[in-house]
Design a protein around this nucleic acid. Structure first.
Lengths: 233, 233
DNA sequence: TGACATGTCAAACAAATGTTTTAATTATCT
DNA sequence: AGATAATTAAAACATTTGTTTGACATGTCA
């Protein structure tokens, strides 16, 4: 008897069922979320027995964590943060590439879009699998965007306005994903899909560039109050 | 015997349990969503028997629909679309009031914020109760904002750029709500709460005003392609 | 071939949950 | 007070769902 009972046989065995479970689970978790997804449905789609999940992954939660990691790798492999961009590229072009890649990543058909959908679920119903991925993927992403914005604003990446502008940019990207249903009913033309990705990326980039280039200096609270506020109670 | 058995006694009876259920359900549905919320938990919080929901509302789904409507009324009663603003007010001030009221509406403590939380859930797991509210509340809201944006851009409210800019503005507002957890971990200072509402409203308004005032004319696809894109495959 | 680990399967278990039922209780009206 | 309707309460029902169990099959290696 060998001494590594934990990791399922590394090369020898088929491992086919395990892979099928991972794929099926990706689709089901992305579509239904952790709690509403059922082990039975996952096994059915994988053509496996109901006991397969517990045998291969221990429990539903472990399977979920592995699917999240797997789908994240897939998504960023297909759509890197800055595809085909080098350091010398002008910041506005970098920004456009960032926004475009972001939109493609979350609007792609099935396997690639799993990560975006699971992230969206995690925002509302965190399972604990989020924290690790945040530091591993989202923090570097924020740093990347922060660098671009800092270059455009001519300020330090630590500057608060750099953070605020970065968030304003990301917010426009995730919006078409998070609020897809509302946009689809109110303004069907602006729904995010394969044929609207490019114009939407263009708009978001232009809008944000114009904003950052002409953003007024932050004013003192009192003056701001007089200029923008009508009635502040 | 009178002829209206349907509506529970209009004035006579206590009606206290029903109200308690509505309040408790608001908290539970907002926190857990429709499916994960349990009738038992709602009844427990309301100090009522497990059969109370079915007796007073028929079933869980009807209770949910009533809670959604109730919370929506509460939220917009406390924070109207444009509080204390008349038609003659300059558009930038209107915009600031709109953004500020929006942020307050979704960041308010418990009873008022229920609607925002339930809306967020509806985006991901629609129960069918959303459509009605969309036409009733969200469509007029979009029209209101569209009017302000059209005024700033000097264009028709039907213009596509008016729609896109409106969405860019709303997206920044909902972002701090939808992605609260991520923002809290990455940039704790920018988390939406009572003390950050005002500076966030100021930033979003300034950012969007600068963008709209200096938005370049949309370019032909070819020229745009040359100016912003690096590698388009 | 025979022993052993690995994987699969059908069935069952245990817990959670929306709903129903039936009886008891309370309020309302004559 | 007494009759009638409205409300509450406890228990049970039916379904769903994650997990476990024990039998069976399959492959590997001596």
């Amino acid at each position: 008897m060998d001494l590594k009972p934990q990791p399922p046989p590394e090369v020898g065995s088929p491992d086919e069922t395990r892979r099928q479970l991972l794929e099926a689970a990706g689709a089901v978790f992305a579509a239904a979320g952790f709690r509403q997804a059922t082990v039975r449905e996952i096994c059915r789609r994988a053509g496996a027995n109901i006991a397969a999940v517990n045998y291969h992954f221990g429990d539903k939660e472990t399977l979920y964590a592995e699917v999240l990691r797997y789908s994240q790798q897939q998504a960023f492999e297909k759509y890197p943060l800055l595809p085909g961009i080098d350091a010398a590229t002008p910041a506005p072009v970098k920004l456009h590439a960032f926004v475009r890649s972001f939109l493609l990543r979350i609007s792609d058909p099935e396997p690639t879009a799993w990560f975006g959908k699971m992230m969206l679920r995690e925002m509302i119903e965190p399972t604990g699998a989020l924290e690790a991925l945040l530091e591993e993927r989202i923090r570097p992403m924020a740093a990347q965007l922060g660098g671009i914005v800092a270059e455009i604003l001519g300020r330090s990446p630590d500057d608060e306005r750099v953070r605020l502008c970065s968030l304003s940019i990301v917010s426009q990207c995730v919006f078409y994903h998070h609020c897809r249903r509302v946009v689809a009913q109110l303004f069907p033309e602006q729904t995010l899909n394969a044929s609207t990705v490019e114009p939407l990326a263009d708009h978001i980039t232009r809008f944000s560039l114009a904003a950052m280039r002409h953003l007024p200096e932050p004013e003192k609270a009192k003056r701001r109050s007089r200029r923008l506020s009508a009635h502040r109670r």
